[in-house]
Design a protein around this nucleic acid. Structure first.
Lengths: 229, 229
DNA sequence: GACGATATTTAGCCGAGACTAACTCGTCGC
DNA sequence: GCGACGAGTTAGTCTCGGCTAAATATCGTC
């Protein structure tokens, strides 16, 4: 009788926000989130996760069947998407206005996202012109909580010869990001796969207007998501 | 033998940062910080303060004599001044670049100051041109931890007829700040006290180039700090 | 110099969120 | 259909930073 009619939003703790965000991302990627997966992502021990899942479940932010798995409730998803919006707006703001780069902005955003108010996020969004993508090409959810469904393929799965646009770079590792930027592989660039070696061998790309060649290994190629143009 | 030769800076908690900052401000204002004063400022119960003071003392961030009082150590003061720098840079940044105003910027800065990195603060400082004062006229400590000694008098203590510059507005209350701004009483403005009613009565000011008159009560006048020009 | 008012500390408690050690469930191989 | 193994949970502990109630110290007053 007390659970259905209101939400005073008593401000979630930093930890809770982190768990929700990770559950959201893992569900998105793998279809579900496991205790072990969450533990690995947050770098905590598995029993800590079990404990938190129980609390989140009581707060009705997740649906949790022990030994089975975990799923966000509507409210939990809302909170998670809000964190994603915060994170991506902050990343974009820092790169556009405060001399951060796509390879070092992640940790700063990771801390700020728990401290900013809704008001500040919306002010940043206004200054940025209500942007739709962050520096890595990830879509920014709207203030209402809607997020664009991405329909991208990893470059490793693209057909040879098809004209592609690089849309998303799915890694946070500074070294890789720096290397990719040096190679001109940033969101928005046009490219075509011109060759692919067998047995997960390197992929050859033809890049942009200059048609410059690039050869990259599959490990790196797997973080490059494209769409046909 | 373990205390004198290094400081790995294991990153203070949010609470510790808050306590140090409050102790710094109270010592600055009253000459010393009492348990009760700290408790009132942080809106926690007195025993919570006692407990924290013990911990801070063990961490050698304060010198603490039970029942007597508390004083920052060199290291504690350094940490406190760093928080002051953060707070004031953030306040100025938000007002200059993100459409905040001096009457609503304080709570936002209060949360952000615990989340930002040194790097972000220095980037903000660069964008702001290494500013020396925040929106309320408070001096911003340097990155090295030096803070300008202010030698100001409250307008209630100023002599009649002397030309003054309003330098600092020492309140955070939104209503008061809004009212003062409406009256044109913001840092930098020139003014002269033209009359003062007895028994802590209102003070009459002549303001800026226009010589406009303003009458304000002592309570408000006490937050206006000036220097002779 | 004793007394009462006020400030402060101690004692004991709680919840969040982490940990390790030990137990249990689910699943896969035979 | 039974075991074994790995993933997940329970049990028990810890620290931080709050709280209330009760004890104690300090200080101003007579």
């Amino acid at each position: 009788m007390q659970a259905t009619h209101r939400k005073p939003s008593p401000r979630l703790t930093r930890s809770v926000e982190d768990y929700l965000k990770v559950i959201y991302h893992l569900s998105d990627r793998d279809g579900c989130a496991s205790t072990g997966g969450i533990a690995a992502e947050l770098e905590v021990a598995a029993p800590s996760v079990s404990g938190m899942l129980k609390r989140l479940s009581e707060a009705e932010l997740i649906k949790y069947v022990p030994y089975r798995g975990v799923e966000l409730t509507r409210e939990g998803r809302k909170a998670a998407v809000k964190m994603v919006r915060r994170h991506r707006i902050i990343e974009l703001y820092l790169t556009k206005h405060l001399d951060y780069h796509w390879d070092n902005v992640h940790p700063e955003a990771e801390r700020l996202e728990h401290a900013v108010s809704d008001e500040l996020i919306e002010k940043m969004a206004v200054v940025l012109g209500n942007p739709r993508y962050d520096p890595h090409g990830d879509p920014i959810p709207t203030a209402a909580g809607e997020i664009e469904a991405t329909d991208l393929v990893p470059i490793t799965a693209a057909m040879i010869g098809v004209k592609l646009e690089l849309r998303q770079v799915a890694t946070q590792e500074p070294d890789r990001l720096r290397y990719l930027a040096e190679q001109g592989l940033t969101p928005g660039v046009r490219l075509t796969v011109t060759a692919r070696q067998p047995f997960n061998g390197p992929i050859t790309l033809s890049l942009g207007a200059s048609a410059a060649k690039r050869v990259i290994g599959t490990e790196l190629a797997n973080v490059l998501w494209c769409r046909e143009v």
